[in-house]
């Protein structure tokens, strides 16, 4: 098996499985992408779990807890798929703690009000869905199957967020203001979740050639914006972009300039919650060390008894 045969498989839309030959570059790209995807799910639990204890009704509480729990599950599917490439979960977690691996920068923003739960479900999960639907067709078998499983679960996430926003937008004036405020804070970070513009994206070439990535950042971003504008209009909230306008010729929405300086600044560690998110993850891990050790000791004892 060599590079030529490998590329032929890719071009024929065949899946690559764990025991197949693959170029080192393909393996490394996947490890980085899948692990960062997994880390994002897990770190992504934090901004939302903040509000579970303060959810304003029994129903809202259960739904939010179920949603955040799903994110943990998604993290597990992805770590599991990533491990098929010959790296352990422990190594991956270590990379996260050593800041050698990243996670989606959207989770470096704080959740300040209950309406943020609506904004995150609607916009952040919405953006994730656009990305993940596309990734269902990724060339690596385990990643593709994980994406299919995740997509099935993800649409409830977006619906619960949108439902929160819709209810608040037609509620009391304070609720509507809270919802609009959340939309104002999460809109731009959400559309920047799709990553740098295509012109600035260094690794895209191989990712597209190897069909790890099926659509470009800009294509996915446009897809998301086109879907979401109408949703905001239906519930009577205003997207904070004065340049947002339907372009009849293109058949898409034109939108305003994104603040890439802020984006890169946050990605590189200067966001409101970067330190807090990692500290939280490290602390949970350290606090659990004695438990994991005890479980291992107990298991060993069972073998010798």
């Amino acid at each position: 098996m060599d590079e030529k045969k490998f590329q032929e498989k890719i071009d024929k839309e065949q899946k690559i499985e764990p025991k197949d030959w693959m170029p080192e570059g393909y393996r490394n790209h996947l490890i980085r992408q899948m692990s960062q995807h997994a880390h994002s799910e897990v770190i992504g639990m934090q901004p939302e779990r903040n509000w579970i204890t303060r959810a304003p009704s029994l129903r809202a509480k259960m739904i939010l807890l179920a949603k955040v729990q799903d994110e943990a599950g998604h993290g597990l599917y992805l770590y599991s798929a990533c491990e098929t490439l010959g790296i352990s979960r422990q190594e991956l977690v270590q990379q996260l703690h050593d800041e050698k691996a990243k996670y989606s920068s959207i989770f470096n923003y704080p959740t300040l009000t209950w309406a943020d739960m609506g904004a995150i479900g609607w916009l952040v999960d919405g953006a994730a869905i656009v990305n993940q639907v596309s990734l269902q067709r990724t060339s690596y078998g385990p990643y593709s199957r994980a994406m299919i499983k995740i997509c099935k679960e993800e649409s409830f996430h977006q619906r619960q967020g949108y439902e929160i926003m819709a209810e608040m937008a037609k509620g009391t004036p304070e609720q509507k203001e809270m919802a609009q405020d959340a939309l104002n804070r999460f809109w731009w970070p959400s559309i920047m979740m799709f990553g740098p513009q295509d012109s600035e994206s260094p690794r895209s070439g191989n990712a597209m050639k190897w069909k790890i990535k099926r659509q470009t950042n800009d294509e996915l971003r446009q897809n998301f914006i086109d879907k979401t504008v109408g949703q905001a209009e239906v519930i009577g909230l205003k997207i904070p972009d004065p340049d947002l306008k339907w372009n009849e010729e293109r058949g898409h929405y034109d939108f305003g300039k994104m603040d890439w300086e802020e984006f890169w600044s946050v990605v590189n560690g200067n966001g409101p919650c970067n330190k807090q998110r990692l500290d939280h993850h490290r602390k949970a891990h350290e606090d659990g060390a004695w438990v994991r050790k005890a479980a291992q000791e107990f298991a060993k004892k069972q073998l010798t008894n």
């Binding site: 798929a81 994980a146 479980a295 291992q296 298991a299």
Partner: peptide, 11 residues
């Protein structure tokens, strides 16, 4: 369907 990590079979 995938895998899990655990220290014993009950877990």
């Amino acid at each position: 369907v995938g895998n899990v990590h655990a220290t014993d079979k009950i877990m």
